[in-house]
Amino acid sequence: MIQIEGLQKRYGKIQALRGIDLTFNLGQVVALVGPNASGKTTLIKCLLGMVIPDGGKIIFDGNDIKGDVLYKRRIGYMPQIGRYPDNMRMGYLFGMMKDLGKTRVKELFDEELIVAFKLEEMFGKPMRALSGGTRQKVSAALSFLFDPEVIILDEPTAGLDPLASEILKQKIQKEKDAGKLILVTSHIMSELEEIADSIAYIVEGEAIFYKSIAEIKSESGEERLGRALFHLLHNLKCTR
């Protein structure tokens, strides 16, 4: 579904992406993992056309995304920190997003998360009055709203209460089973272990490995993902 070829991005002196090659297919849940400032968010923003790469290309369903916006119809996105117009009421926000998204492929809306998070009760509240966690719920609900084929979640569970996290994880599982491609960044290994099937490990703008979790576990001989990764990275460093 998505092919990334030799993607490069430089912010001034900082080389954020140094030639990343990755391929994601429908039905996958891929976790983008790496230390802080490794380039995960830059990669996501390149996918969404929010950052224009300096080199390389991104092929979405066979077409280069350069200069195109319509491919975004098929992507849902949940940002790390969702901020919305302060004075806008939540119900109005959902209405607006539906209105703006009318050019999307499907006219049906997936409002499962709105219901599950009980957001409707707070539709009358202006966005500025909401807590960070509630805003994250709004962001999550928005990313699934159009029932897109690709869903990108940047730190989805940060700030969510355990119950909401669980609802979100179940939703991700459900969408995966429905054959969607889901990209997730997170630092919580136990969580990734639950939802992801592959891990792309990014360090200093390079994808140093991209393997399925099963593969990682078998290669390292560890049962827990965190430890498995640690081993794998250690080995990689040694071989270098």
Binding site: L48, V69, R73, P79, R83, Y84, L100, G101
Partner: peptide, 11 residues
């Protein structure tokens, strides 16, 4: 951030 949100939309 709102503009960012809009940019992530097919606009």
């Amino acid at each position: 951030e709102f503009i960012e949100l809009l940019v992530a939309q097919p606009l």
